[in-house]
């Protein structure tokens, strides 16, 4: 196989990890709360700046800043759900959508006020110097990024499948009424799910901080892609979201190589419309579909 193709494939998988994690968060939020979260990109940016601020403020490395950033993201997500979204629980779908849009404007522009629109970089030279794996080259920062994605996803899996909170979240996603009857505190679970979704997205953003220059609207550019991935995987289907994240990363990278970046974007959006129309439950089948 052509070495450039292989390189594009590798780059795609690594970037796909970020997509996967961010889309996982989006899909979790949709699965439990039945909300299409238009603040998702902004939450991703929050994660980027959280890592940046903690790292610069405390003088620690970006990776050491991750745990604290995760805690902050959880708090942020939990609060957004509890204070704002929860209060319009049974409003029509588009009202919730608009509410998250308002939240996105607030988050993004608070960051703009605090950090200015200037690019910020937090790259660690040692992690940027490309290393060679056979004929392929890759920056260690990207490998670390992917490793953390896998670790966080594994942890997320453990949380969802091996703990009581996780079981409650999954039960609420499948059947809210049933969960309530089983004695699950659904309101708290919904806030926790939003918090966890924020953590996934925030980490996905935070992991980009050591890899690229960040600015307050960077996360927004990932948002539509997250929608594409989550729908492809089946909104609410977590593992579908993860797999299609990697898949889209690879497709984007390969089609970028063969067709050029812009046409790959067209391809992805075109596929998005096609899937929304023909198979809105996603290619993995089990996703939720909201009727309203």
């Amino acid at each position: 196989m052509n070495i450039y193709v292989l390189q594009a494939f590798l780059d795609g998988v690594l970037m796909g990890g970020i997509y996967a994690l961010a889309a996982l968060g989006l899909s979790l939020i949709f699965g439990v709360l039945k909300i299409t979260n238009f603040a998702h990109g902004a939450m991703m940016t929050m994660g980027m700046y959280a890592v940046y601020a903690i790292s610069v403020g405390m003088g620690i490395g970006p990776y050491a800043a991750l745990p604290l950033a995760m805690a902050m993201m959880f708090g942020l997500g939990f609060l957004i759900q509890r204070v704002l979204i929860n209060s319009i629980d049974h409003a029509p779908a588009y009202n919730q959508l608009l509410l998250t849009l308002g939240v996105a404007y607030i988050l993004e522009n608070v960051l703009l006020m605090v950090f200015t629109p200037n690019y910020r970089t937090l790259t660690v030279d040692a992690f940027q110097k490309a290393i060679h794996i056979g004929p392929l080259t890759v920056a260690p920062a990207r490998l670390i990024m992917f490793a953390v994605v896998l670790a966080v996803t594994a942890g997320f899996y453990m949380l969802l499948y091996k703990t009581r909170v996780g079981r409650s979240i999954r039960a609420s996603a499948q059947d809210e009424e049933g969960a309530r009857l089983m004695g699950i505190h659904v309101k708290r679970i919904r806030a926790a799910a939003f918090g966890l979704g924020a953590v996934c997205t925030g980490i996905a953003g935070g992991l980009l901080t050591p890899v690229m220059s960040i600015y307050p609207t960077l996360g927004e550019s990932f948002q539509l892609k997250c929608f594409v991935i989550a729908v492809l995987g089946g909104m609410g289907n977590l593992w579908g979201a993860f797999l299609s994240g990697i898949f889209i990363g690879v497709i984007e990278s390969l089609s970028g190589y063969f067709l050029g970046g812009t046409w790959s974007e067209m391809l992805i959006y075109g596929a998005f419309i096609l899937i929304l129309l023909v198979r809105p439950t996603g290619i993995f089948g089990r996703g939720n579909r909201r009727e309203s």
């Binding site: 959508l97 129309l277 909201r290």
Partner: peptide, 11 residues
């Protein structure tokens, strides 16, 4: 294809 609500908005 009977799209409504959020999915219609996304299209």
């Amino acid at each position: 294809y009977h799209l409504r609500g959020d999915f219609f908005a996304l299209v």
